[in-house]
């Protein structure tokens, strides 16, 4: 692996008494496409939400691009809890695609894509619009720029969600079950878009998904999460054809043969 762009160093996350992540060690290399699979409640989504600074951590250190995410370095390399300006700076390296899309329903598709580039990156209206149109073209929605999210299908909305995140030119894209809220026939169009941006950009991509076939084709590495830890990880071949752990086998058997 190249230098890790994401590194979890003994990260613990608790919700009340429930330990969601238990001293997790986890690394993602620059440009790597990593898929996280596992049963619900195993802490998969929490990993993404911690990276996007939507959830605080209770212990350990998270590094993004070599810098601590939830901490700031003080004199003598001491780590103290990060404050908002640091978090904001760190966040700009990442983009996130949500299970429920979370598009801004009162903004046109175009405005969804230009709002943050204009306000946060300071792009001019023309530049932001040009960037947005390019991205809409890429996700195949250039004719829908003036519509509102409510007028689009779920699959179209999620493609807007992907384009919106990409408009900030992140180095890392986080996909939190991007197709779980979609009707089955709309899953393909979203996965195709994810596949194409994986090919075009030198993006680091981290995805939580239940789409095992996609995970298998798409990922450089698959991580199986169970009870707040990585139970097993490896290439898609290793995980899907010859899982070493009994728990992994059980899980894969259950999701791949749901009617048994």
């Amino acid at each position: 692996m190249k230098d890790p762009i994401i590194k979890f160093d003994k990260v613990t996350k608790r919700f009340g008494k429930v330990t969601v992540l238990d001293e997790l060690d986890f690394e993602v290399g620059q440009g790597e496409k990593v898929t996280i699979i596992g049963p619900s409640g195993s802490g998969k989504s929490t990993v993404l939400r911690i990276l996007m600074t939507l959830e605080k951590i209770n212990g350990g250190v998270v590094y993004v691009g070599g810098d601590p995410l939830w901490h700031e370095r003080r004199s003598g390399n001491k780590l103290v809890d990060a404050r908002e300006p640091h978090l904001r700076r760190m966040r700009e390296q990442m983009g996130m695609v949500f299970q429920q899309f979370n598009l801004f329903p009162h903004m046109s598709v175009l405005r969804n894509l230009t709002e943050a580039p204009r306000c946060v990156l300071g792009l001019s209206k023309q530049d932001a619009t040009a960037r947005a149109e390019e991205l809409l073209e890429m996700v195949g929605l250039n004719e829908h720029a003036d519509k509102f999210p409510g007028q689009l299908s779920g699959g179209q909305q999620q493609r807007v969600g992907i384009a919106r995140a990409l408009a900030m030119r992140p180095k890392i894209m986080l996909f939190d079950e991007p197709t779980s809220a979609l009707d089955p026939e709309l899953v393909g169009e979203v996965l195709n878009v994810i596949r194409s941006i994986g090919a075009k950009h030198d993006l680091t991509m981290l995805m939580v998904t239940h789409e095992m076939h996609f995970a298998r084709q798409f990922s450089d590495r698959v991580c199986f999460f169970d009870k707040g830890k990585i139970k097993e990880q490896g290439t898609p071949e290793e995980i899907f054809t010859a899982p070493k752990e009994e728990r992994t086998r059980e899980f894969l058997h259950a999701v791949l043969n749901p009617d048994e």
């Binding site: 939507l54 966040r91 700009e92 996130m96 949500f98 429920q100 979370n102 943050a116 306000c119 900030m168």
Partner: peptide
């Protein structure tokens, strides 16, 4: 207003 709206805004670094 759905929590996801705040989260999306935060993920986009909006102030």
């Amino acid at each position: 207003v759905a929590r996801g709206q705040r989260e999306a805004a935060r993920a986009l670094s909006l102030s």
